[in-house]
Amino acid sequence: MTESNETILSLQHLQKTFGQHQVLRDISLNIKKGEIATIIGPSGGGKSTTLRCINLLEEPTAGEIHFHGENVLEQNYNRNIYRAKVGMVFQQFDLFENKNVLANCMVGQELVLKRSKDEARKIALANLEKVGMEQYINARPSQLSGGQQQRVAIARAISMDPEILLFDEPTSALDPEMVGEVLSVMKNLATTGLTMIIVTHEMAFAKEISDKMFFISDGVIAEQGNPDQLFNHPQNEKTAKFLSNFQNN
């Protein structure tokens, strides 16, 4: 995996409060270009909220998000351009129900990146081929299985040529037999040098793919390091306890 030393994304003391409930207390992390980072941790610990804050689907209550050194929370920062560069794959796929597979992968390119129809189509087809969905370009999302939908969602995201791709538990809503096809697409993607941040419960997958892992619990990063450090030499009691659940399986 190619790594440079350039920090592409940096979260600094991020906080998020929903009403009285503080979900994120203090999240700070750095992602370098080309890094594959996974975020693990117990449910309700703040993993997904962290990811959603990065994409600005949630407005952070406090803290800063730096993209290429610029604070994206500044008033004048162009958020739509930023979002186009930071792609997202959702747990529930969220393909556009009114559009077929091909149009799902083209609409963002045409509207946001202002690519021509032909160019958008070419890129969409190439990416659909990458995820093995090129045969289904005329299908409606509702006609596809969960695994197929998620693969189209990935093609939709990478068609935007993002600098970072966020995955919010991409396999949690899938039937077990479909998890493999999505994970293998993600593994292929990881070899292309794309920066990825993945929230997942697939520990074996995380262990295999990650350059860096973050264990988030109770709204803070309890521990971080490479897979070997977290799985084999956890420093924090919570990390050890959490991971032991998976290793016993």
Partner: peptide, 15 residues
């Protein structure tokens, strides 16, 4: 999810 997916692609409110 439809709103969110569209936002995540960088679409404006009108788009």
């Amino acid at each position: 999810g439809q709103f969110e997916a569209a936002s995540a692609l960088g679409m404006t409110h009108n788009q």
